[in-house]
């Protein structure tokens, strides 16, 4: 396992041409960065190497080969004092290491905004409004924040990291751009539900959490977050 990971660290991803960032294995056996996989799974829906179709539900259960946050990969970046986050359902996600470097560099330069190519889609991060907006669908926006790396977060770039998880399990989840008014309210409701349950047995609250997570996921999947499939 360690050997495989060491080996992976030396190789380059066929999509971004950089060292693997959260290497993820497709059913055909080809490996790309998690965000690169997300891009091709959403856009061409085919493996970039062999064109084998990627199962439509692949991103619900991606095969991640490396559960170590790979700060070692971003050796060209010295931004560990600050971490950029975007808002998700009941919590904040860390941006992946590369986007974090780009955001921090632009912010330090005094830019008003930063353009990011995330999973094949273009986003503008507005530093004055602290908002991330998708270029081809302006209704898809998320709040962003710059904070210390220790802020409690859901994970990195859609890869959920449970600190008290079972056997290092990593659960990845689709990015979902929330239009601020609707879905964020939904989120708040969910987290209030959870808080109400917090006084009860941990197990129950755990189950409720999982269930509401699953329900939300199913709803959102049918609502479809995929690009080029119509706007809200």
């Amino acid at each position: 396992m360690v050997d495989v990971q060491d080996e992976l660290r030396e190789q380059a991803c066929g999509v971004c041409l950089e060292k693997y960032n959260h290497p993820t294995k497709l059913p055909c056996g080809h490996i790309f960065c998690f965000l690169c996989v997300k891009g091709i799974a959403i856009q061409s829906k085919k493996c970039a190497m062999c064109r084998t179709e990627i199962p439509h539900d692949y991103l619900n259960n991606p095969v991640l080969l490396d559960n170590i946050p790979c700060e070692k990969n971003s050796t060209d970046c010295r931004t560990h004092d600050y971490q950029w986050y975007y808002e998700g359902r009941n919590g904040w996600w860390k941006y992946d290491e590369r986007s974090n470097c780009d955001l921090e560099a632009a912010f330090i330069r005094g830019d008003k905004q930063c353009k990011l190519l995330l999973a094949g889609a273009l986003y503008h991060v507005d530093f004055e409004k602290n908002l991330q907006v998708r270029q081809n669908d302006q209704t898809r926006r998320r709040r962003v924040r710059r904070d210390t790396p220790t802020l409690p977060s859901k994970g990195i770039a859609g890869i959920k990291t449970n600190s008290e998880n079972l056997g290092g399990e990593i659960e990845a989840e689709l990015h979902r751009e929330h239009s601020e008014n609707t879905e964020n309210n939904e989120e708040i409701l969910v987290s209030e539900d959870l808080n109400a349950n917090a006084s009860e047995e941990d197990l129950i609250s755990e189950i409720v959490h999982t269930l509401s997570d699953i329900t939300l996921r199913t709803q959102e999947e049918t609502a479809s977050d995929l690009p080029d499939t119509g706007n809200r």
Binding site: C16, L17, D102, A105, D111, Q113, C114, K115
Partner: peptide, 12 residues
Amino acid sequence: MAALPRRIIKET
């Protein structure tokens, strides 16, 4: 404004 993506720099 927008930095050139690393992949393009690398290819160039």
